[in-house]
Write a protein that binds this DNA or RNA. Structure first.
Length: 294
DNA sequence: ACTCAGGGTCGAC
DNA sequence: GTCGACCCTGAG
């Protein structure tokens, strides 16, 4: 993969703290690939290459067809306006949360495309990150528009493109029992029954219920879609990893269901819910076995 | 070769 | 509210 060097005028850098590996390839997004010292992926119809050195982080546009770099879009995507220092200070006295923030400092929550996020987290159920990545990237390669000359330079397919593919093709690609769920989401999307504008303006309950009308979307997946696709901060997805942190070191009642735990955590953490949850998720997932948190 | 579980959810009881 | 089924894949 050489050839970036001719494009280097199409780039910008920033100094906000960010942990690229944890943020781009830590289980919230599935289409960033480590390549040549940085991460290559797409945002919308742009192919990006992101890398860091001692001083700052650089975002480079590989296939920039426009003359202007849309810095604001990338900033929003990476959630650079979120003040990690304030967040960190706020929980400095909470032994467990503080240890998780220290464990993976620079971890941010991405603001991804809602449609891609919806399909990705339907795909995630009873799966694992490696398989989700394989499924989602195969789908993009097979049904999405090519954006660049890289192995993974594809735009995420539209609802119509996925409908054209059909359930059987999804099964052949390895989506398994999730295939009809993805078709249901695509059908709702294409007829306007799945309405992202509504979700953007609705309160938490209404947003969750709207998403849960999709087959294969339960409370947990709906929470993930709101967190990683809509930038909501009052959502608290509870999966097996987060549950482990909540009922273990954080002392929540282990008899509660994940849904109950989510409600309790939302009440407790309010608008910090999404970030607290994500630090628990990533921290628990990457924790070395047989190593206590302190 | 065989079992098991991985960012859950659905439908029947 | 509980429980098995659901597809596939890599690890033990």
């Amino acid at each position: 993969m050489i050839g970036y060097l001719t494009m280097l005028e199409n780039e910008f850098n920033f100094t906000e703290q960010i942990n690229l590996k944890a943020t781009l390839d830590g289980g919230q997004a599935f289409r960033w690939h480590y390549d040549g010292g940085g991460y290559r992926g797409t945002v919308g119809s742009q192919v990006l290459w992101v890398y860091e050195d001692e001083k700052n982080t650089t975002v480079s546009y590989i296939n920039n067809s426009k003359s202007q770099i849309d810095r604001r879009l990338v900033s929003k995507y990476l959630d650079l306006e979120f003040d990690l220092e304030i967040f960190s200070n706020k929980y400095s006295k909470d032994k467990y949360i503080n240890s998780k923030i220290k464990q993976c400092s620079g971890l941010r929550i991405l603001k991804q495309d809602p449609w891609e996020t919806t399909v990705s987290f339907i795909t995630s159920s009873a799966s694992n990150v490696e398989k989700i990545k394989k499924n989602i990237n195969d789908l993009c390669i097979f049904a999405g528009e090519r954006l660049g000359d890289g192995r993974y330079d594809f735009q995420f397919p539209s609802a119509e493109q996925i409908l054209d593919l059909g359930e059987e093709e999804l099964r052949k690609m390895g989506f398994g029992f999730r295939s009809p769920y993805i078709i249901d989401a695509a059908r709702r999307m294409s007829i306007g029954k799945l309405n992202f504008r509504f979700i953007e303006d609705a309160d938490y309950e209404d947003s969750i219920n709207h998403l849960m009308e999709i087959k294969g979307v339960g409370k947990k997946v709906a929470d993930c879609i709101l967190t990683y696709g809509f930038g909501r901060r009052d959502s608290f997805p509870v999966d097996r990893w987060v549950r482990r942190g909540l009922v273990g070191p954080m002392g929540f009642n282990s008899k509660k269901t994940n849904e109950q735990l989510s409600d309790m955590a939302r009440t407790k953490y309010g608008l910090d819910s999404a970030y607290v949850q994500h630090y628990i998720f990533y921290g628990e997932k990457t924790k070395k076995k047989n190593l206590e948190y302190i």
